[in-house]
C-alpha cells in the first residue's frame, strides 16, 4: 500500500469540494477559485496514481498531461477573470443575473 493512493483520494476530495463551491456560491471570483481547485484535484489524481507502483521513475505521460492541463487552466482563468470584470463593470456586481432572464 503506497501513499500514492492517499494523494489520489485527496485529489478526489479537492475536485468535489471545488464542485460544491462552484454551485453553492454566487460570487464569480469564488466560482473561478472553485474551478481552479477542482482542476488541482484532477491533476493530483492523474499524477498520484502514476506513482502507485512505487517505482523511482513514475510514468511520465500523466506528468506531461498535467503540465498541459496547468496551461489550459491559467488561460481559462485569465479569460474568466476578464469576463467577470466586464460583467461587474456593467452591472456593478460580480454575480450572474438570476437564471432565465427571458
Amino acid at each position: 500500500m503506497s501513499h500514492a493512493f492517499a494523494y489520489a483520494l485527496v485529489g478526489a476530495g479537492l475536485f468535489l469540494l471545488g464542485l460544491y463551491a462552484l454551485v453553492a456560491y454566487a460570487h464569480l471570483l469564488r466560482k473561478i477559485l472553485a474551478l481552479n481547485i477542482m482542476g488541482s484535484g484532477v491533476f493530483l489524481v492523474l499524477v498520484a496514481l502514476a506513482k502507485r507502483t512505487g517505482d523511482a521513475e513514475p510514468d511520465p505521460v500523466p506528468h506531461a498531461m498535467v503540465i498541459t492541463g496547468i496551461v489550459v487552466a491559467v488561460s481559462a482563468t485569465a479569460l474568466a477573470l476578464a469576463l467577470m470584470l466586464k460583467v461587474s463593470g456593467k452591472t456593478g456586481q460580480a454575480v450572474l443575473p438570476g437564471r432565465h432572464q427571458d
Binding site: 491533476f43 521513475e57 506528468h63 503540465i67
Partner: peptide, 11 residues
C-alpha cells in the same frame, strides 16, 4: 513528494 519535479516547477 510524488516525484514530479517538472510539475512542481510549473505549479
Amino acid at each position: 513528494r510524488l516525484n514530479a519535479p517538472d510539475i512542481a516547477l510549473a505549479e
